[in-house]
Amino acid sequence: MDILFLALALVIVLQFFKRREQQQRVSLLGSYLAPYQIEQQMERLLDGYLRWLGEDDAERRAQIRGMLDGVEQSLSGQFARFAADVQAMPAPLAQVSKLALWIPFAQPLLPGRLLFDVRRAFAIHASGIEAMVRREDTPDAKAQAYALSAELLLMQHTCHWYCRGWAVASARLLARHKTPHAQVLASVSPRTRADYLALTGRR
């Protein structure tokens, strides 16, 4: 009985510190995101792509596409500024565990090979989003919309990974967008995928 009680007490204590650590990260990342409307514009863009692809009237489809062009430009610019702002984040707070599960107190003790710098990850995402908006590699509008959607979902996954851990981020991606992490990663540009894998090691 004593062992069970101690085990339960340990679980409760670890959960408390886990939530506290995660909330600190949510607050920190939120402070960098606060000046921007990145999440709102991302949702607007993803919903707009569905409307555009489902529209039968050619004139209306062109109108929607024109509106989406403006949202893409705004979102790309805002995320580039956010990624630049995040470079001021203190290095110890920018480290992210590559482990699937969040372990309280573990992050400062992990060796460098089990960590990555989220500032570098956001720079990769900013570059990938900008390239897709400029249609450097995907001149076809539908292919560009699909690839840019993947770039945005991978970026959102990184935000959740930083705040909650890889497993929770992947579960949220699947629950919200019905898309597994592996599919998103396969759908971004080859440059984003190569840089992301080199940094995080996560497929």
Rank of each mutant, 00 (worst) to 15 (best):
E72R: 03
R113D: 14
W161R: 14
D47H: 07
A34K: 15
A121V: 01
Q23Y: 13
A143S: 13
K178P: 00
H181N: 08
L6E: 00
Q183M: 11
F5P: 05
I124C: 00
I64C: 08
A106Q: 12
A62R: 11
D56C: 07
A126Y: 01
D2P: 14
A186R: 13
Q37S: 14
P190F: 00
G128Q: 07
L174T: 03
E43L: 12
S189G: 11
R176E: 10
Y49A: 00
F105L: 03
Q22H: 03
V71E: 10
D140P: 11
K142C: 03
A145I: 01
S149N: 08
F79A: 03
K98S: 07
A7W: 03
L173R: 02
F105W: 14
R20Y: 12
A198I: 01
Q24F: 00
E21N: 04
P108F: 09
V86C: 01
F82H: 05
P111R: 02
R202W: 04
A83K: 12
L99P: 04
G48M: 02
E151M: 01
Q73D: 15
Q73C: 08
D117G: 11
R60V: 07
W52E: 03
R81Q: 15
G112S: 06
W52Y: 14
V133C: 01
L152I: 01
D57P: 07
L53K: 05
G165A: 15
E59P: 06
L33S: 05
R51H: 09
Q95A: 14
D69L: 07
T179R: 04
V11S: 05
R44N: 06
G54M: 03
S31N: 08
S127E: 13
R134T: 05
S27V: 09
A143C: 08
I103S: 07
V11W: 10
L199N: 09
A100N: 13
L68R: 07
V11D: 10
A84R: 05
D2T: 11
A88E: 08
S149W: 01
L173N: 00
L199D: 08
A106P: 02
V184I: 15
F17I: 14
A80T: 07
Q24D: 04
A182D: 04
D140I: 10
Q37K: 09
A198V: 00
L114Q: 09
P92V: 02
L46M: 06
P190N: 05
A145E: 06
L174C: 00
R193A: 15
H181E: 07
V86I: 09
L53S: 06
S149V: 01
F5E: 13
T200A: 02
Y162A: 12
A91L: 05
D195R: 09
Y32R: 01
A100I: 05
G70N: 14
E21S: 09
